[in-house]
Design a protein around this nucleic acid. Structure first.
Lengths: 337, 337
DNA sequence: ACCCGGATTTACAGCGCTAGAAATTTGCTC
DNA sequence: GAGCAAATTTCTAGCGCTGTAAATCCGGGT
């Protein structure tokens, strides 16, 4: 059997509560006692029983991270970071997947209301602000593009990031810029791109806004195919609201004989690891995921400490990462043989 | 405050234990009682307190999944499946990352020994069989290529999968086949490929075995670059032990003017989502991850039930997924303008 | 009407840990 | 050496749920 507090206490010749005090770093423990107890813990290999501790404390030690899918690398990477950040606050992360379904997101929210968890980090895709009306006092923080007034939020400034992306394209001499994304998901990014174009005396004509119903390569490829079929004059750059979309777009462009970046520059968003294995490597916007994770955990702690503190919306930084896909001149794969 | 068993009992007019019995599906409960209790639970929105339950049961309800990194899509996807499979056994999954470091893998193993968890699913990269010597009775199941005699294992037959891959390349008329992978990680796949070549009267000359020290695109690209610099005669096909490697290999090939698959076919392994966004789409081997996850959980349950049951090594199926990168003739991106 | 065995339900003792209050010891002061 | 406050340690209840064993109920047989 695993050793219990009582075993440690017996071995150290003190009371059970003293051991508990040592473990919990109470003040007022004499040096000698602390040493005796620490030694006993060491010798016995004692580890606290978390179920018992949690029961006594009325805390579960678990927070939930709700993301659409774990096999989307953006979210996988976010999960990685959140797990690390949460450990620092003695929380374990339980990952729940919503598949981007509104029903699943609502269910998570409902669960949080009656729940056995200490907090929730949610990356919602389909939730409406009104869904939050009857949320419980459970610490909750939202990630992602949309901000809901009544809840803490951590995220980058997507419009500003889109601005950097578009400016980067403009700086490399591009003028006719298409945008792949929205309407549902990536509104801020599209909005940011459009307003930046406008600020430079350019425009985002309707035919250059290619809407998608998802953010995978297939969606990007289909959107670009549709555009190519439409017969509109080609853009000289495409800004995609995710890297995955961008890969599909590049695929479609190249299948139709366009060179990237020579004929058309392509810009993504997210900075997923595959960007570097692609040909051309993908220029992108890299959100500071580590910071997002850290601040999300910080928000939960704040909410746990104060009952219902003021709502905070926090903006995290991002970086423009220029790579081959937007280079002024890029590698030209030459057919050989 | 959240309702407790006692509240439900009071409301239903029965004892606390009867409510517990209903919740735990004990036999011998009269229909009337069951209905009263169920109604009370419903009305109060009662949810059992897991900390308390786990404490009473001496079970934590948590299993650990140890993987190298969550942002490798193979493992992300595996984690996804495992979470789902574990839910069916009322377990939730705590993901731990080893970064492929032996020390981290050992640490996980050590933790399992003194631990607060019900079981562990481990996908080891650097562990030695001897490291398992003093493992505790904690249910443990290993995934991945290497089988350790004393522990349950679930995985595909990597050598057989490599055989299908190589046969596929042979069937599309390729004869000079290079292999990217190993020596550390993917031995079975390399071994399978080599023996298949041999079985067909071919060979894997040393210069066509390109070893790598990792499985990312960068590793693949560097390995292929090194080969190209070496001046050896070109292969007409490359089998890579992961898709990610394959992407890097394709990148290197195309940068040097080779067409894929026309000049060189490339075959991957894992079936990650990006395969479809690549140009060309990547032929690959798709392990049945869902089955792996399901069987891993089943193994843990079996071990939990019987004290130390017989060790089982289970083989799960895989599929060959032919795509553009190994087509007899593929799409030819034509430079335009 | 009474007894018996199986069907149902209840009482009660923990699971291992923490919190608050009480008890004890210690260090000083005079 | 007594007296007092602060420092340190122990006592005593639970946290909410489950398992065992004992109690109660019920219908049929006599």
């Amino acid at each position: 059997m695993r050793p219990r507090l009582a075993d440690v206490a017996a071995r150290a010749g003190v009371s059970i509560k003293t051991v508990s005090n040592v473990i919990n770093d109470f003040p007022h423990i004499s040096r000698g006692t602390r040493e005796k107890v620490t030694a006993a813990i060491e010798e016995l290999g004692y580890r606290p029983n978390l179920s018992a501790r949690n029961l006594a404390k009325g805390r579960t030690g678990v927070i939930v991270l709700g993301v659409p899918r774990l096999d989307m690398p953006y979210f996988a990477s976010l999960a990685m970071q959140l797990i690390t950040a949460a450990e620092a606050a003695s929380w374990w992360v339980q990952i729940r997947q919503t598949r981007g379904e509104r029903a699943a997101e609502l269910e998570l929210l409902a669960e949080s209301r009656q729940s056995r968890i200490d907090g929730m980090v949610l990356s919602p895709l389909r939730l409406h602000e009104s869904d939050l009306a009857e949320r419980s006092g459970l610490p909750l923080v939202m990630l992602g593009e949309r901000r809901f007034a009544p809840v803490d939020h951590v995220g980058i400034d997507n419009a500003a990031a889109a601005t950097s992306a578009v400016q980067h394209l403009l700086e490399t001499g591009r003028r006719r810029i298409a945008v792949v994304g929205g309407p549902m998901r990536s509104d801020q990014r599209v909005v940011g791109a459009r307003s930046t174009l406008r600020a430079h005396g350019l425009d985002l004509p309707a035919e250059l806004h290619l809407p998608v119903r998802g953010v995978t390569g297939r969606h990007g490829e289909e959107a670009m195919e549709a555009f190519l079929r439409s017969g509109h004059p080609m853009p000289d750059a495409v800004f995609c609201v995710t890297d995955w979309l961008a890969m599909g777009v590049i695929r479609a462009l190249r299948l139709h004989g366009f060179r990237v970046p020579d004929d058309v520059a392509v810009m993504g968003f997210d900075d997923i690891p595959y960007d570097l294995a692609a040909l051309p490597t993908l220029s992108t916007i890299a959100p500071d995921r580590e910071e997002i994770a850290r601040l999300a955990v910080a928000s939960l702690r704040r909410q746990e400490a104060a009952g219902t503190p003021e709502v905070q919306h926090t903006v995290v930084g991002h970086r423009l990462v220029p790579r081959e896909s937007t280079a002024a001149t890029g590698p030209v794969p030459t057919a050989r043989g």
